[in-house]
């Protein structure tokens, strides 16, 4: 009789349970609870103005977290994104302010540099077989060093008015970068869920050797996502510079850990093969709202990082527990 039960289509209640007890479902519940609690504690929290402003602030980490999700799904990691951001920000300032190139061209060049930085990571990871953690650890130092060397501790300010639209302006009522992030997130989610490329990433994460032997273009796909990571870091750099109106070589340091925290909180397995963009986005929103909500409640911003660290461990713990229970049943 058991075979009949397996064949039968899942009832709506079973379906609901699957959705609820999925990684994203649990996280979403946590998010709802957190928002409810925070909204009850502070009037200023659950207002469109505040929420949109938080969206503005989280977009830079968010943009970087999208390719980070891809990379972690393949079992890799990219620690160099913060440094790429710093390098691109400094280059933006130097190329425009120092060399006097037109700003439009500079933006294109900066994005190109980001892609090249990502490709350099991919080159040694794919061709030489350096473990991603080590490769990006080395380029974390290298790119940050280049940023420091090129900038020589000078900062560049005085950008034209139109440039500030990226970081401070609005498009259709949304902060520009939030709109950009939403578009990119949807694109990334579609790519990951429904394209050959996306499914290949899971295959690489689950079994890299198997993926290669199945004839999947492992090297090309890895190069693609690391380049994508560099591109997003460069884009985040442009937005960052536009938002704070200056360039400094230490911009974006620690960004990689924020992005990884969002990805891991979102249920992407650090060992690869599992994860989703939706989870990353929820993780990102959860962290940002926690920071903001606690700050509005009068908790100092330093205390909030304790809460976020605890949250990270607890969320994984709860999730592990529930997934184990489900697997057991």
């Amino acid at each position: 009789m058991s075979s009949d039960a397996q064949i039968r289509a899942p009832s709506p209640i079973q379906r609901l349970r699957t959705v609820l007890f999925s990684q994203e479902g649990i996280l979403f519940l946590i998010l709802v609870v957190v928002v409810a609690v925070l909204a009850g504690r502070s009037d200023a929290f659950f207002t469109p103005r505040n929420l949109l402003n938080q969206g503005r602030l989280m977009s830079e980490v968010g943009l970087v977290a999208l390719p980070m999700t891809f990379i972690i799904i393949t079992g890799g990691i990219d620690l160099s994104v913060g440094s790429i951001l710093g390098l691109c920000a400094v280059l933006l300032g130097v190329l425009w302010g120092g060399l006097g190139l037109p700003l439009g061209l500079v933006l294109v060049l900066v994005l190109l540099v980001g892609v090249l930085a990502g490709l350099f990571n991919a080159l040694l990871i794919v061709r030489v077989g350096v473990p991603p953690l080590i490769m990006t650890l080395a380029t974390l130092a290298l790119y940050r060093g280049l940023a420091q060397g090129i900038s020589e501790a000078r900062s560049v300010t005085g950008y034209p008015e139109w440039f500030f639209r990226f970081g401070q302006g609005n498009v259709a009522g949304l902060p520009t970068q939030l709109g950009l992030f939403i578009v990119m997130a949807i694109l990334a989610a579609v790519v990951l869920r429904s394209t050959t490329l996306g499914r290949t990433l899971y295959a690489i994460g689950n079994n890299p050797v198997g993926a290669r032997f199945s004839g999947l273009p492992v090297g090309r796909n890895l190069a693609l996502i690391y380049a994508f990571s560099g591109l997003m870091a460069a884009l985040a750099a442009i937005i960052f510079v536009s938002r704070v109106t200056t360039t400094r070589s230490d911009m974006g340091s620690g960004l990689e850990l924020d992005a990884i925290a969002a990805v891991v909180l979102g249920g992407t397995s650090i060992f690869g093969g599992k994860g989703s963009i939706l989870g990353t986005v929820i993780g990102l929103v959860l962290i940002q709202l926690l920071k903001n909500g606690l700050a509005l409640m009068g908790v100092t911003s330093d205390a909030t990082i304790i809460v976020i660290g605890t949250m990270l461990i607890l969320a994984i713990l709860v999730n592990n527990f529930i997934q184990n229970r489900r697997a057991g049943i």
């Binding site: 925290a261 060992f271 330093d302 205390a303 990082i305 304790i306 949250m311 990270l312 461990i313 592990n320």
Partner: peptide, 23 residues
Amino acid sequence: YLKIPSIVVTLGMLSILKGVLII
């Protein structure tokens, strides 16, 4: 014992310890 990957645990611990330190 709780089978959380070490990079995740210590990423969380990094935040917690840093926060405690600053406060």
